[in-house]
Design a protein around this nucleic acid. Structure first.
Lengths: 72, 72
DNA sequence: CGTTAAAGTGCATTATATGGCATTATTTAG
DNA sequence: CTAAATAATGCCATATAATGCACTTTAACG
């Protein structure tokens, strides 16, 4: 997943759960400013920050082998 | 995946590919010091840094829904 | 043992993420 | 359109990630 996809995933998930940025910031203990920056694609969050956010949204970060034989 | 698992995954992958930290640092354009710090569990890398490293190792970062019904 | 390669660490500097606050823009209701 | 809620931004101080360099540690090998 590229940067933008990650952002999109987080944002969509947040909206699906009907949580505002403000609320998510509180729940995850991430500054509102930081969260906003991230969601608007202007940040380069720390792994810890991303994890805190993902966590609250019921998601987790993982690493997977890229599919080399990218058939399209 | 927790922090330590991520680190472990990266490290194992690197070793499986028989690449030294030094070489990986060059290939990924991440400072050697940064890579070392990360692998020895002392850092809190930036998403970009993690991505650069993962990329060279043929891996990608992804977000997935946590399994709530964690049957054990 | 000494040698060598790879990994880990201390220190200092620079770049940048974090986060608060105020302000502006955008979206959503009424 | 107006008002209220939510999101985006600029400014700015502080914390810390990124990085280089030198040095130490560890592991493998003769």
């Amino acid at each position: 997943m590229h940067f933008n996809e990650l952002i999109k995933t987080i944002k969509e998930r947040r909206e699906a759960l009907q949580v505002t940025q403000e609320r998510l910031a509180e729940l995850s203990n991430v500054g509102l400013r930081t969260l906003k920056q991230f969601e608007s694609g202007k940040g380069n969050p720390t792994l810890l920050t991303l994890q805190k956010i993902s966590d609250v949204l019921g998601m987790e970060i993982c690493l997977k082998i890229k599919n080399i034989t990218t058939n399209k």
